[in-house]
């Protein structure tokens, strides 16, 4: 079970009783729960999801519904995924910096 790390953005309010899933975020192990999306996992562990390409600072998503596109991260296999609509899977290795191109 994950306890929200000090400094995590989100607060879990319930639904603790789910199988835990180990993923990694920028190389550090992180225990999420089955049914979590990556955005939740990232924001329970910290307060940043990515950096703006324009140097105006960290971003952490905005709409939670796949519309704003401000939550894209990389997986270690090179895929880019939208954190708010991607469920965590065992051994997912999330990278919040650098990767390949997505058009749109």
């Amino acid at each position: 079970m994950t306890t929200p790390a000090e400094g995590g953005q989100l607060r879990r309010l319930g639904e603790w009783d789910r199988p835990s899933i180990r993923i990694s975020i920028d190389g550090a192990d992180c225990d999420a729960l089955e049914g979590d999306v990556l955005l939740s996992a990232l924001l329970l562990a910290g307060r940043r999801v990515r950096d703006s390409e324009f140097g105006d600072g960290p971003r952490a998503g905005f709409c939670w519904m796949g519309a704003c596109q401000d939550c894209w991260v990389w997986l270690s296999d090179g895929r880019r995924v939208r954190a708010c609509t991607t469920p965590v899977e065992p051994k997912m290795a999330v990278l919040t910096r650098a990767g390949e191109t997505v058009v749109g």
């Binding site: 307060r47 105006d56 600072g57 952490a60 905005f62 709409c63």
Partner: peptide, 11 residues
């Protein structure tokens, strides 16, 4: 654009 700001629907 700061982390911690979300839409009402997103919240």
């Amino acid at each position: 654009t700061l982390p911690g700001v979300y839409t009402l629907g997103g919240a």
